[in-house]
Design a protein around this nucleic acid. Structure first.
Length: 521
DNA sequence: CGTTTTTGACCGGCGC
DNA sequence: GCGCCGGTCAAAAACG
């Protein structure tokens, strides 16, 4: 059962969370097991305590009822009553032997025990209901904060830009933040860039903008698969051109050109570093290699892959071995799947999405937002599961967040490792973030881990596994858990789609599919 | 024979 | 304008 805490963040919750204790670096699995035992013991104690309380109450109430109820036939010890009424009851009372008294008390005991049992069951049922309600409350709260934050973003952008070109810029501001969080998930079929383009410009006009015949041919090919345009991996000019033509249509060229350029500059990537002897990470998707290049400063070639799980899927990845340490494989993802994903792929995508969201939302967040933003919360929930360390690179033109799995293979559970996770570069919004709030986030994240033994397997020592095995086993472990999958999907949907993004209500949700895909490379 | 990989060519951005 | 570089294309080769 998927239990949620009755109170969130309360002082009594702390023992409930397998927080990485600074003093006990080797708690690991035993602590998890011990924790569950203690939790069960506590639960049992609570039940016993409560049922005892109920028991006493019942006895008292029964005594009161018995005193008032003269027709029950149970000896209440009120001899006066029996003596005065002279009823059958009194006659029975008078004729009671000691054996009868004992039998009655035994029957009474049995009845009380049954009631006790029922009360315990009811308590259990109530606890389950409470858990479910808490669960619902949590997800609703996340959605609410997501909505509030989005509105706040819009309001903020509108007010700051109101001095100059409020209307036009606001329209664009809806585009810019949203495009940062459409990486990896299948729910957002059409990226904001494409939505903006489609809104303001026909495909033909795109062709007209192409400078050469070949360029036009490529664009035509891409137009055949609508989603391809949503991803502009390594080709920022395409976005610029599209947005430039959009701006021409809107008749306010320069301002939007500038914003479009900024939007292009902030296209996010998620890079995963992992130790692996394999050529690529097994991330659940089918990939086709479409190019290989020698990159400057690295003797190892960089390989370019395209997702082939669906025709026209724009998701691409780059794979390159680390120059310093050949055993480390650096996989960089960008794009937005336009098809359902198998769970393993989906959770990999979810993790990278969470990372991207954290990266992109964090850079323009107030400190309060940094703590309350569900995107950040969720990113922090997800990231510890699959990465030991997240670093952010400001290298233009694409901001990149790097999930470092190289340490997690042997060090996931160590407090040092968890502390490392906290050490985000003091950059942009993260620098303003209230650090004191992070442990709660971590606690929340760990709470998810703790609640599901399979999921908490992500936190188990994996010395014997290489990174790709860790990733695949982790994703498989998560995928095997429908409860968490549902919660994850709901949370991600609220984060990625936001309240206004409902246009993708098709079959584009890849959750809970059966895993059948195997990495080809 | 269909699919995937390889690899040289091409393109656009960027710095000088 | 030129060259470098990263990214992509597409024909040929390889593979199952």
């Amino acid at each position: 059962m998927f239990r949620f805490p009755v109170s969130l963040g309360g002082p009594h919750d702390n023992p409930m969370q397998p927080l990485p204790s600074d003093e006990q670096p080797h708690r690991a699995m035993m602590d998890e097991v011990d924790f569950f035992r203690s939790e069960k013991r506590d639960d049992h104690n609570i039940i016993t305590e409560e049922t005892n309380r109920v028991h006493v109450k019942r006895e008292n109430s029964r005594a009161v009822v018995d005193d008032d109820d003269h027709s029950t036939g149970i000896n209440t010890g009120l001899n006066l009553l029996t003596a005065h009424t002279g009823s059958d009851e009194s006659m029975v009372d008078d004729g009671l032997s000691v054996d009868m008294e004992e039998k009655r008390s035994k029957i009474e005991n049995v009845q009380l025990r049954e009631e006790l049992k029922k009360a315990a069951e009811e308590i259990q049922r109530l606890k389950e209901m409470l858990s479910q309600t808490t669960n619902n409350f949590n997800s609703l709260q996340m959605q609410l904060v997501a909505v509030m934050r989005q509105q706040e973003d819009h309001h903020h952008v509108a007010t700051t830009e109101n001095k100059d070109k409020a209307t036009k810029r606001h329209e664009l501001s809806e585009m810019v933040p949203r495009q940062f969080i459409d990486l990896g998930l299948p729910t957002a079929e059409v990226s904001s860039e494409e939505r903006t383009t489609v809104r303001s410009e026909s495909p033909l006009s795109l062709l007209e903008n192409s400078s050469s015949r070949q360029r036009g041919k490529r664009l035509l090919e891409r137009e055949e698969s609508p989603d391809t345009e949503s991803n502009n991996w390594g080709n920022p000019s395409k976005v610029s051109k599209h947005n430039a033509s959009s701006s021409n249509c809107n008749g306010n060229g320069n301002a939007i050109d500038q914003s479009a350029a900024e939007a292009t500059m902030r296209k996010a990537r998620v890079s995963v570093r992992a130790r692996s002897e394999a050529s690529t990470l097994i991330d659940g998707c089918h990939w086709r290699k479409y190019g290989q290049k020698m990159a400057k400063g690295n003797p190892c070639p960089r390989a370019y892959f395209r997702c082939t799980m669906a025709v026209g899927c724009p998701v691409r990845k780059q794979v390159q071995r680390c120059a310093e340490e050949r055993s480390i494989l650096i996989t960089t993802y960008e794009g937005n799947h336009n098809h359902p994903l198998p769970p393993a792929a989906m959770y990999m995508a979810s993790t990278t999405t969470a990372a991207a969201s954290m990266l992109l939302s964090g850079s323009k967040m107030s400190s309060q937002d940094g703590l309350m933003n569900p995107t950040n919360l969720f990113a922090r929930t997800m990231l510890p599961c699959s990465s030991s360390m997240a670093t952010i690179s400001a290298s233009a033109p694409f901001p990149t967040i790097t999930l470092d799995l190289t340490e997690s293979a042997s060090n996931v559970n160590s407090p040092t490792n968890m502390n490392q996770l906290m050490q985000f570069p003091q950059r942009s919004g993260f620098g303003e973030m209230n650090q004191s709030g992070l442990p709660q986030m971590m606690g929340q994240a760990l709470y998810y881990n703790q609640q599901q033994s399979k999921f908490s397997g992500l936190q188990l020592p994996t010395q014997s596994l290489n990174a790709s095995e860790s990733v695949s086993s982790a994703t498989a472990a998560i995928a095997a858990n429908p409860n968490f999958a549902a919660a994850l999907a709901a949370a991600l949907t609220s984060i990625i789609n936001g309240p206004n993004n409902h246009q993708n209500g098709d079959s584009n949700n890849g959750n809970n599919n059966v895993t059948t895909s195997i990495e080809r490379q």
